Computed example of a mutant assay.
Amino acid sequence: MGKKIRIVLAEDYTILRAGLKSLLESNPDYTVIGEAGNGREAIRCTVEKKPDMTIMDLNMPGMNGMDAIQEIRNRIPEMKILVLTAHNEEEYVLASLNAGANGYILKDATHSELLIAVERVMIGKTYLSPDITEKVVQGYLVGQKNSEPLTEWAAITRREKQILKLVAEGHTNKSMAEFLCISIKTVEKHRANLMKKLDLHNASALTTYAIEKGIVTH
C-alpha cells in the first residue's frame, strides 16, 4: 500500500489499547492516530481526526461502544468501523451490525486475523470472525422465518430508548445533548420521533411509559 491506513482505537483498558496499537503499527501500512477510553471520547476523536477506520470495543464506561457506533455512523456515514470484543453472542453481533459496524472480530483472534479483518473492511466488505459466522447466519435465517410485525416498542431505535430514559430521569434537551454528544436539534428530532411512534404527547406521558417498561424506577 502507498498511503497508510489511519486508525482510531477505542478501548477502555489502557494496557490492551497499547498492545493493540503496537500490534497494528508492527505493520507498516497502519498508523494509530488517536485513542479513546470510552464511547464519547471515541466519537470526539473520530469526528476530529477523521481516520480511515475506528476499531471499537463494546463494553466501555460513560457511553458504550454500540451507542458510539451508531452516533459515528450518523455523523460520518462513510466511516469504517470494526468491532473488537470478547462477546461472541449472536445478539451482540447483530446489534453491532444494525448500529452500523462493518466488521466484528473477537479479542481472542490471531494477529493475522485482525489484519485480514482490517483489510476486508477497508475495501468495503463485511468481516465476521469465523467462530461466530455460522451461528449468526443460522440465527438470522431463523429470525426471518419467524418474523412478525413490529410492536410499537420494537420499532423504537436504540437512540430513542436512550432519549426516553433521559426524559424520564428529568433531563432537559440541552443536558441530553451534552450527555449524548449530539446537538439539541438532533435530540429534538429523536424526541419527536419517539412521541410520534408511541402516540404520547408530553414528558409526563413518556415518563409513565418508561416506568411501565422498567427503563426507570420511581
Rank of each mutant, 00 (worst) to 15 (best):
M1H: 13
G2F: 12
K3V: 11
I5E: 00
I7W: 02
I7R: 04
A10E: 08
Y13Q: 15
T14A: 14
L16K: 03
K21E: 13
N27I: 08
P28H: 04
I33C: 08
I43M: 07
R44E: 15
C45F: 03
I55R: 04
M56D: 09
M63F: 01
M66C: 07
I69V: 14
Q70T: 14
R73F: 10
R75I: 12
E78M: 11
M79R: 14
V83P: 00
V83M: 07
L84F: 15
T85L: 08
Y92G: 01
V93R: 02
N98S: 12
A101F: 00
A101L: 00
N102H: 15
G103S: 06
Y104Q: 02
K107N: 07
K107R: 08
I116V: 11
A117R: 02
M122A: 09
P130D: 13
E134A: 13
V137K: 14
V137Y: 12
V142M: 14
N146R: 11
S147A: 14
E148G: 09
I156M: 08
I156G: 04
R158K: 15
E160D: 07
K165T: 15
E169P: 00
G170C: 10
H171C: 14
T172Q: 00
S175R: 09
C181D: 11
S183A: 08
S183Q: 07
E188N: 13
L194A: 04
L198G: 10
D199P: 01
A203I: 03
A205D: 11
Y209V: 08
G214D: 08
